[in-house]
Design a protein around this nucleic acid. Structure first.
Length: 135
RNA sequence: UGGGUUGACCAGGCAGUCGCGCGCCACGCAAGUGGCUCGAGGAACGUCCGGGCUCCGCAGGACAGGGUGGUGGGUAACGCCCACUCGGGGCAACCCGCAGGACAGUGCCACAGAGAACAGACCGCCUGGGUACUUCGUCUUUUGAUGAAGAGCCUCAGGUAAGGGUGAAACGGUGGUGUAAGAGACCACCAGCUUCCCGGGUGACCGGGAAGGCUAGGUAAACCCCACCCGGAGCAAGGUCAGACAGAACGCGUUUGAAGGCUGUCCGCCUGAGCGUUCGGGUAGGCCGCUGGAGGGCGUCGGUAACGGCGUUCGUAGAUGGAUGGCUGCCAAACCCGCAACCGGAAACGGGACGCGGGGGAACAGAACCCGGCGUAUCGGUCAACCCAUCCA
């Protein structure tokens, strides 16, 4: 499971990640990710709405996603803010399906972030624009 | 042995592996690291009642408004629980009841039906009249006139609520007297109503008796009446720390009282200098509240019981983008399918193992301030008491 330092804790972090991050959707999840400073530990947050199911179903989905996120820390241990939104299909998915969707989405998103970081000027402009919009 | 009623309890187990949260301990300047303890439910759910707790200055009156509704008790309190009463269901154990008042008043009672709330005459029954007819008698030469009786049709006037039919319900039931036919018109018994008396019970009420009048519909989950109860908002309550910013315009007002508070309205009381609208700007973090409570177990005493007194013992989740778990394997009860030793049978066939193999393998559901209830969801399992039927002794 995920320890507290590896979790997103505030609504500000959630909203900035969802708005500015790279997005990739699969059958069971939609994954958003934004870069952090490279020294910081990767932080992951989860959005599981009521459309997924009742409280028991939502808890199971959340725990499985948290486990998948924990397993991914060995690869992406630092420098990412990730928000995982569970889709209604996730309540009926098996652990294998759910973890594959998570891994594939995370790999795709991480690849795109690495590509855009090879153009640091563009990233700088983008974050600056974001600050202006939000400010 | 089978069927049933009620109550209590459980809510898969084991192992491996990788982890999470509060707390404590050790190390470390610190970030942190390591170890240990504890870590979801019978409904944690719905949020339908009742309380604790917090704030609203005190928690005033009247009227509105809301709730409850047999009686007595239990409780912090309740719409809950227990016991009893009444009514209903069941052979029984037992279960069910939104169980005050319809002589305070108002309203409503569809359809059907002749008639439905100071009832009603459709058919039927009965009486009388009219019309035409038959028979008999009398009068008359005859036509005919008149009287009596009769049955039928039509029609008119009345009597009749016993019968038919309609309906959830038709103004007591049964039998008789009575009558033209009938009718509580009268009588007997029964049911029911009102009043009174006696006895029992804390009481709801129960048992017995007398008199009266012959009969009184339902609906209060319609308004309403009666009795009793109820201040509002809610842990996003509330408190505290830190941090950020920038004000401007207009209106009303400062003892001739703005704006508030006391659930709504009115009265009455209180606070007493700001308040409202628009534009613009900022923050949406930490900590406390936060879990020891009307707490659980056992014993004993009181009580039919719910429950209470006393003694003793136990220490039991506190997250906050939200921990209490993810994955893997094994075992196992129902239950289903196939094969079957064996049993019954002439056979067809039927049954089928503390037999084999395969399948199947756990419901409903996740704390969010805390309790007491209720309601709802739920694969199944265990135990106890009691009832009925059957068999054996």
């Amino acid at each position: 499971m995920l320890a507290t330092p590896n979790r997103l804790r505030t609504s500000a972090e959630f909203s900035s990640t969802v708005r500015s991050g790279v997005r990739y959707g699969r059958r069971n999840v939609v994954l958003y990710a934004a870069p952090l400073d490279s020294g910081e530990p990767t932080r992951i947050g989860f959005i599981v709405s009521k459309s997924v199911g009742n409280a028991v179903a939502r808890n199971l989905v959340k725990r499985r996603l948290r486990e998948a996120g924990f397993l991914s820390l060995s690869t992406y241990g630092t420098g990412l803010a990730i928000v995982v939104r569970a889709l209604p299909a996730s309540s009926s998915a098996t652990w294998a399906q759910l973890s594959v969707d998570f891994d594939v989405a995370l790999a795709a998103v991480a690849r795109r972030i690495v590509t855009s970081e090879s153009l640091p000027k563009a990233v700088g402009d983008r974050t600056q624009q974001e600050r202006n919009v939000r400010g």
